[in-house]
Design a protein around this nucleic acid. Structure first.
Lengths: 159, 159
DNA sequence: CTCCTTGCAAATTGTTTGCATACCT
DNA sequence: AGGTATGCAAACAATTTGCAAGGAG
């Protein structure tokens, strides 16, 4: 899906619900698109939107992100650092940058993205078994990264 | 793994690191064991520990939970309701109550637990491919539950 | 006796809300 | 015009931190 298209999709959905198409909402979505590899906090998004719209308030960004998430235009993920992050994920499924899974090192807190498309079968199975309709998923693996395993072996146990 | 054993494991790990074995730490772990089906907030744990130890402070509970998590004695999970939850998960693997996966309804926010042991192959594959050593995982599916699907069909689209 | 831990209260931080003004349609 | 959105500041809530007193080894 191209940038132009995602913007159009947002406009369509807004219209459909009687909500207004505003510069702020379009900019928030646009920033997420231009950074489709990273998981951004509201603050980071606000920072970047400010380039084109210096008057924007952080509260507006929070409101816009929540809206986009409700409309399923963006994904939400939280590592364990106390803030929610947003990502334009499944809409760009063809995109090689799309990674829905994350390996999180419990020692150095590094986050390593990992390819998607591993859960499709599982999703279908769950839908059949429970009647739950799955829209999205979030999968995190906690453990030790290569580097920290190396260090662990050469130094005494600790955390 | 039995209750007695988990307590002993904690004592061992504390000793190993030169930390003290305190009533508070043992009680926090014990409360999580006695509620091994549920995902508890720090506040809830504090509430229950208070029965045996009325002087305990919420800060101590937070500190103990973090410690237990670091020692991999308990698991951590966060739904999207703004507070972290703890659960004694993988230590009780034989336990039928153990559920690491959750279906979260985006409409009514209901959380439906779902059986584990679906990701073992995937974990082995990832370890081979990346050199990352996996200790634990957290998998959430977002979507619409049976009930909300029914309601959706009988009422106009909304969220 | 020494250092770790606790309890309390204050501080911090991410996020939400109330409200008057500004903006879409 | 009419209702929705915005920006700002104040409100909130979960979690963390500083510190003096208490407790484990």
């Amino acid at each position: 899906m191209e940038q132009r298209e995602v913007q159009e999709l947002l406009k369509e959905k807004l219209k459909e619900k009687g909500l207004k198409i505003t510069r702020q909402r379009l900019l928030v979505l646009s920033v997420l698109e231009q950074n489709s590899g990273s998981h951004m906090t509201a603050e980071e998004v606000c920072e970047l939107v400010s380039a084109d719209c210096p008057e924007i308030g952080l509260a507006t960004v929070y409101r816009a992100l929540q809206l986009l998430w409700n409309m399923q235009l963006v994904d939400r993920i939280s590592f364990d650092d106390g803030c929610v992050r947003y990502e334009i994920g499944h809409l760009l499924k063809g995109d090689t940058k799309h990674n829905h899974h994350h390996l999180i090192c419990r020692k150095c807190n590094k986050v390593i993205p990992f390819g998607d498309d591993l859960l499709d079968d599982l999703e279908r199975y769950i839908e059949g078994a429970t009647g739950f309709h799955i829209l999205d998923h979030e999968l995190k693996f906690y453990g030790l990264c290569k580097d920290c395993i190396k260090k662990e072996n050469s130094s005494p146990l600790s955390f």
